[in-house]
Write a protein that binds this DNA or RNA. Sequence first.
DNA 1: CCAATTTACGAACGTTCGTACTATTATAAC
DNA 2: GTTATAATAGTACGAACGTTCGTAAATTGG
Lengths: 211, 211
Amino acid sequence: MKKGITALRKGKQTRAAILDKAVAITSRLGLDGLTIGSLAQATGMSKSGLFAHFGSREELLLATLDHGAQLFTDVVIAPALRAQRGAPRLRALFGNWLDWTESSALPGGCPMIGAAAEYDDRPGPVRDRLRFGQGQWIGVLRKAIRLAIETGELDPATDPAQLAFEMFGIALVTHHHRRLLGDAGARQRALTALDRLIAANAPRSPARAAA
Amino acid sequence: MKKGITALRKGKQTRAAILDKAVAITSRLGLDGLTIGSLAQATGMSKSGLFAHFGSREELLLATLDHGAQLFTDVVIAPALRAQRGAPRLRALFGNWLDWTESSALPGGCPMIGAAAEYDDRPGPVRDRLRFGQGQWIGVLRKAIRLAIETGELDPATDPAQLAFEMFGIALVTHHHRRLLGDAGARQRALTALDRLIAANAPRSPARAAA
DNA sequence: CCAATTTACGAACGTTCGTACTATTATAAC
DNA sequence: GTTATAATAGTACGAACGTTCGTAAATTGG
């Protein structure tokens, strides 16, 4: 038998394949649209065979969110960390974020944004997982902002939480406008907004960048 | 028999009562969560009796969106139009918008925002209706911005579309942070962000406000 | 008050939902 | 190669889904 470099056992790799499809479906139809039957059909498996991988639908939803979060980390965060800390990294994070919502693997945009809108008022494990993921991501954003303050590219008086909040808003409205309204210029508007956001938080006394 | 001042026939007023509940359910569970059965239970009606008012589930969804839009107009737009044109009206629109998402009639926040996230990738009458409503609202925002330019409270170089876009983003992230993350300070952050937005678009040469 | 019409109900349809069980096949370890 | 185990399929279930139909009750207009 051939064993790939990853040496994944059969079950694990079909599970991963299932979750790829699950993330895509969630992207288009939301978590509510992710049913065992439709997912089985999409993967060519039987309902019961697929079901055995997760034990319950809720576990499937949680696994899908985890899979999506892992994908997000790989595609959005990790590459941006290779950019120079400070403003370049902040812009890279933001740009990758916008790209992510247009990824071909996500026919309906960011699955977490959709899921958040669905589950923000439904207490339970799904919402908890969502909160955790979004909290992690906001933490990454805030840290990148703090580093930009350290490099002198942002004013020391900048509130990282406030700036992350506003950046998040731009990402959400970009998603909203492009997806729902078909606004092709949304991305450009988003970049314009980010520029103004950074400019508004530029150092008041033009101290040269350090580090 | 007593006939109210509105002189609504029986059917119309139960229909309105149904739609009130429908909007509330949509607020919490989204359009996907709005089922004939649950809505019948919430109103104390039979499934078939309720169904007869709409003829199909899709028609129920459309009627729910229309009802929500009407509510939005009454609660958010109309009162703000009594504020002085220009910056005051713009702030009133924004503030009413934020209040709307916390309205007691909407236990899960703005139903249109939730529905938009669900249906932004599902072509059909529901998405079309959603687009129309959101487009109308954006039009109102842009007009208010244009008036603020005319009164001299915003710079003539201000792009109404860009500013409306960014305001929309703040509203979305406020909704997101408060609902999902339980961020009680979201509203204050939103007002701070709006202030910054207006300040950033303040007239460059301090021409006195006209009109 | 009566007749016409609107409004609501109850029962049943076929489908899909999530899940439980059993059986069968494919894989991994020895 | 044989055996133990993991992975998939098959079947069936009760519940909920949207929808249809025939009928009873309530409301309306004359």
